[in-house]
Design a protein around this nucleic acid. Sequence first.
RNA 1: GCCACCUUAGCUCAGCUGGUUAGAGCAUCAGUUUUGUAAACUGAGGGUCGUCGGUUCGAAUCCGACAGGUGGCUCCA
Length: 547
Amino acid sequence: MADNQQPDLHAMRHSLAHIMATAITHLYPGVKLGVGPVVENGFYYDVDLPGDKQLSDEDFAAIEAEMKKVIAADQPFERFTKPVDEAIAWAKENSQPYKEQLLNDLKRAGTTVAKDLDPEQLGLAAGDESKVSEVSFYRNGDFTDLCRGPHVASTGKVGAFKLLRVSGAYWRGKETNPQMQRVYGVGFATDKELRQHLAMLEEAKKRDHRKLGQELDLFVFSPLVGAGLPLWTPRGTVLRNELDRFVQEMRDEAGFEQVAIPHITKKDLYEKSGHWSKFKDELFKITTREGHEYAMKPMNCPHHTQIYASKPRSYRDLPIRYRDTTMVYRDEQSGELGGLSRVLCITQDDAHVFCRVAQAKDEVLHLWDIIERFYSAVDIPLRLRLSLHDPANQDAYMGPEEKWVEIENVMRGIAKERVGDGFIEAVGDAAFYGPKLDFLGRDAIGREHQVATVQFDFGQPEGFDLRCVNEEGDDERIVMVHCAVMGSLERFLSVYIEHTAGRFPVWVAPEQIRIATVNQDETIVAFAQDVAAKAKKLGLRATVDTD
RNA sequence: GCCACCUUAGCUCAGCUGGUUAGAGCAUCAGUUUUGUAAACUGAGGGUCGUCGGUUCGAAUCCGACAGGUGGCUCCA
């Protein structure tokens, strides 16, 4: 829910959702309605059209025209209430099975327990846990809808709007439920604001990394190689290498050592780490000709633990810090792939620290320093999110809950010490092996993306029995700290390309110097080539342009 | 994976309801030009219309499958 918009704008958008539903009801009698809430910049309504009718963009003009008629009629929005049983009867009479289902939930539970459903969509006040005896409706003209409101006084007072797209959406967000059609629109108080918003969308389109990636010759896709598998051109590879080199230089200063690992492993490694059972759907699996099962690595930490575990470690050796920029592979659902934001092969600028519990805090802080230096260099402001486990779903996590709470308190303490109250907490966003400090970067046109991450891991050291010999000569369990600065190079570059609109600073630019000659006279061209050669000797990326 | 839409030259796109050798701009190449502030002139090459199959006398155009893409849904260790 968009919570920072003016209340009347919220009411306008909510009213637009009703007006759209009114129009669709007029055009497609017998339509079954789902929910129609306000979202950022606009609204949507989920509809299930009679017969096999499927909406497409071409139907928008007719729907918009019908909406304009409803708006021109300036019908008042009238609120009234009904006892819940009468409301259920109303839904039955009007063949609105989705509304009926919502009402039944309201009656039975007093609220929609399904946390995937916003109570606001149900005509129910948020936080209202009591049993519901009455529900509210809104009526405009010949259209009546179960709704909490609020609405504007009449349909003439909704400002400017435009329908943008239609897509599939599962009823109540559940994959196993029937799929409805979700019609999205945007709404603003004035035409001018609507035009500005549409202009912003145009700007975002211009910056689209998929478009710029092709125009700037940074990466390509091949249908023969497959979806979600970007191929990096020489120019794009320069970008990747320069950014990574900067991160790795900072890490080396902080005592990291580079390691290298194979991209596949026997299944045994992931049986021990817990990946085989927890993430088996996302593992790319390989069976050898002898029938042995292998998998492409979906992450690097299990491999790295085996380097650590290869010999006895003294407390004097710790912390041991490995860094490794390498690809991991995840078998994502085909429909989720898109550009560089979501790929099957993810290049992680990964790092793992093996240390004693008491050393972990300093390690986290040093890694945090590197993250801050990096994002200040690429001019992307960061916001911290502390990602915690979900107590309601403890089975999804390694280890006992007390341990989680203890470690999360330590992480929260570190965050408080460093940024005060300047961070948010997200229950359920932790990794299965430990809580995370996630960093959200804000790009030049205001969008936020998750980029860097620092993770505290006590699960895997336990699973792999990682230890050191302490001062007393006893075995001591160690902990791991994971850190990726760019996270995924692919995803980071999708953000960075759009952030800079392809105008990269000189230090990462694939082409730093272009020498253009005024004509194609031999001596002049030779001179230009000589200058370019000298520049290259100095380590600069120079080209000659004789056109 | 699910729903909708899309796929014509290297790029951006025309090709109406199926009917002669599929077009344009930019880019490329060749020749001309050598002119100081954001697209010089002339010409040429380049496409089995995503792939495979079907309907039809005839398919870029209609149907199906597959692949790839876009927007969402679901998912994202």
